[in-house]
Nucleic acid binder design. Structure first.
Lengths: 409, 409
DNA sequence: AATAACTTTTTAAAATTTTTATTAAGTGTG
DNA sequence: CACACTTAATAAAAATTTTAAAAAGTTATT
């Protein structure tokens, strides 16, 4: 049964567990600062959590000029998180344990989102099987986190673009079917969250995470937190009107950023040019119908230094840079991170983006803005989905058995 | 002497005074929530502040379904704030008392910022005279708040565009000269802050405040707070590259938003068209050299329904709307406020901006975004400067005498 | 129109949490 | 290798919050 939070103390227990999930090892002073409670109280909570077998001492950290602090970690298997990363064609599911390690294999399967009225049911069926295979009781699963494309309202638990469900929200339907707390968010927001928690945006305040994939998403980090806007739709970078190119976009408007920069466009343009221009390249053929395969070929070739592939990506990168210049003017970030599947092409992105920034920004405003390539790569979204659950861990509906265990204290 | 904060209790005293400055009348429960302390403690603080003659009871508020709450107000003259609003040509100074009322007249004088190495000294001289004329001791003045154009770093207290000062920051130079805590910020940020505290953005979370004047500034309110970005430069709306018009901008780049939308451009275009086209209009003549005068004439005529003036402003408004469409995609705000001196033209702005939003936004994302015209008008910046001081009131360096008075408690 | 049931504010007493002071453990310098 | 200076952990004192109860109003119902 999914109920409500039971005690205040339990909330702080959960906060401690949450920060230990995100950080692996922390001292009592660290945790005291993070949960906003005094050191004596935090000491007490930690002692109790150790006697509950949830937290363990991990020896002393190096001194910073005085007595060395004892550090603490969370045990593996105290709880688990089910992470789901969806794109328009493929969905991946992973099981992550409380010590923040992916358990077993990441499951990958086709699930078409566009014009598929059955997509939500398919997702639920897959989730049921996946969770069944883990052999874990529901009470051991803290929550399910799902990243998906489209206009997602995290608070309402709805997606206005995909996975339509007639009555109520996606979240309530999944929770009813599986009896596990569930959270959903936009894929690019989760990529941003992953960068904030474990990637290049860690400990930064103002970062723009550009999710280069079949569209150009944006995760906005402002004041050290993921920014979602009024309805959760912030970061709709793909569709800002930027070009006079008269190309019609998937959204129906003309000249969106996406029409010159997404990997779909890159793959299509690549296929066309390869055929027409007979350019020398490591790539022998590109099929404009098989976007994913073609995009991967181009990214791989670019890695090997293939000029044709690099030129293709550079052109897209420069156009992305024009959009980034606008972001810099408006939000004055300290960092731009290129993430998502496109980031696998590596440093190729950097020079053209920096070039566009130099050309289109007032120098002073871009002075302290660094461009970086994500090191999280293809895993960013799935990691971000776990972060979404754990970011809300202490607010999550409580699972009965666990609640009793904790309240028995 | 400017020293440091003395006691924790004093910090809460100041927080209470701050919230009473912003709100006029508040109940104990309101204040308890605002300062984040329990009701019994807040009661105690209020009692003490009343015995210090700083706070007074203001009778009972209407019931909301139960016992009516006692309300409290701050006394006039407990402290004062000096507010300064600068633009490139004119500076205004006002004295505001603790009950949030402008005392006496707003002083207005010419102060050229561009290419004026003496501008900071001129400002300091004016401030000295102004404060001298108030006959108030420094200890009665909580702080000086200054809004100015340019790239302002509030934390460092510097402006990279105007009011250059060789050694150290603008803030430290003013503080050294006047012995009064001082804060500076970008003019558009302060217009945004004014809207947040007393205008159309009050109690909203995500709002874009467009400051229409000699440029097009932007105050960004995100999560209910003014957003400044990494170095304080966020909201550089004027210079996002948006047009293929080949017009060179004051910043040196081509096609900035400003080149089609600022009141300078409107005035210049108006003067040109009036001469060339001999259009019928209530306006008899416009001098392209005297921008302020011409802009005012156009705004006034638009108010009277003059078609020529309305067309001029509508064109600029539509272009602003294109920029606003980008803001909506990126930040998903709940409200767009047209503020600053241009807002005096009133509702003329609304239809063309809404039109541009309809044309350039994905409908879903703009669904809940309202466009509004500010009611604060020309006073926004000067009010915002006072808000800047009071927003930081409890963090401000303490003035010795006052500190002793409070600590004597 | 009067009473019961429900709200909200205010006050008082009990329980919790933080602060301050003290002790313990470790670094770096002349 | 003392000596001065850190930081961490613990214990006792002080401050703050929570809980409970009383006071003051509102709304619905008979």
């Amino acid at each position: 049964m999914i109920g409500n939070i039971i005690s205040k103390k339990q909330k702080f227990y959960k906060e401690i567990l949450k920060y230990l999930f995100f950080n692996k090892q922390l001292s009592c002073a660290d945790l005291s600062g993070l949960i906003g409670k005094s050191i004596p109280l935090t000491t007490q909570y930690l002692t109790e959590l150790m006697s509950l077998n949830m937290v363990v001492e991990k020896g002393y950290a190096a001194s910073t000029g005085g007595r060395r602090p004892q550090t603490y970690s969370i045990r593996s298997g105290v709880f688990y998180v089910v992470s789901v990363a969806m794109d328009q064609l493929v969905t991946r599911i992973a099981l992550i344990s409380s010590d923040n390690i992916i358990v077993g294999e990441v499951e990958k399967f086709d699930l078409i989102l566009a014009n598929n009225p059955n997509s939500l049911n398919e997702l639920i069926t897959h989730l049921k099987t996946f969770i069944g295979n883990t052999k874990l009781p529901e009470s051991k699963i803290a929550g399910i986190g799902i990243g998906m494309p489209g206009f997602v309202d995290t608070e309402k638990g709805t997606n206005y673009t995909f996975l339509h469900c007639a009555d109520g929200s996606i979240v309530s339907k999944i929770q009813d079917a599986l009896q596990i707390p569930t959270l959903i968010d936009n894929d690019s927001s989760l990529v941003g969250l992953a960068e904030l928690k474990w990637g290049a945006a860690k400990n930064k305040e103002h970062v723009m995470v550009v999710n280069v994939g079949w569209g150009i998403g944006l995760g906005i980090i402002s004041n050290g937190k993921l920014f979602r806007g009024k309805d959760g739709f912030a970061g709709e970078f793909s569709h800002i009107p930027l070009f006079d190119n008269n190309k019609i976009c998937s959204c129906g408007k003309l000249g969106c950023l996406e029409t010159e920069t997404s990997l779909v466009v890159v793959a299509q343009k690549g296929a066309r040019q390869l055929k027409k221009l007979q350019q020398p390249s490591l790539i022998k053929s590109l099929n404009a119908e098989r976007i994913e395969e073609s995009a991967k070929k181009i990214i791989e070739a670019a890695h090997k230094g293939d000029k044709f592939a690099i030129d293709l990506l550079s052109e897209a990168a420069y156009h992305i840079g024009r959009g980034v210049a606008i972001l810099i003017h408006l939000l004055n970030p300290e960092e731009i991170i290129i993430s998502g599947i496109g980031s696998l092409a590596g440093k190729v992105w950097m020079a053209p983006i920096q070039q566009a920034i130099n050309e289109h920004c007032i120098p002073k405003i871009a002075e302290h803005t660094e461009v970086k390539i994500s090191s999280l790569g293809y895993n960013a979204e799935i990691i971000g989905a776990a972060a979404l659950v754990m970011d809300n861990y202490e607010k999550l509906p409580v699972i009965k058995e666990e609640a009793e265990k904790l309240i028995a204290q």
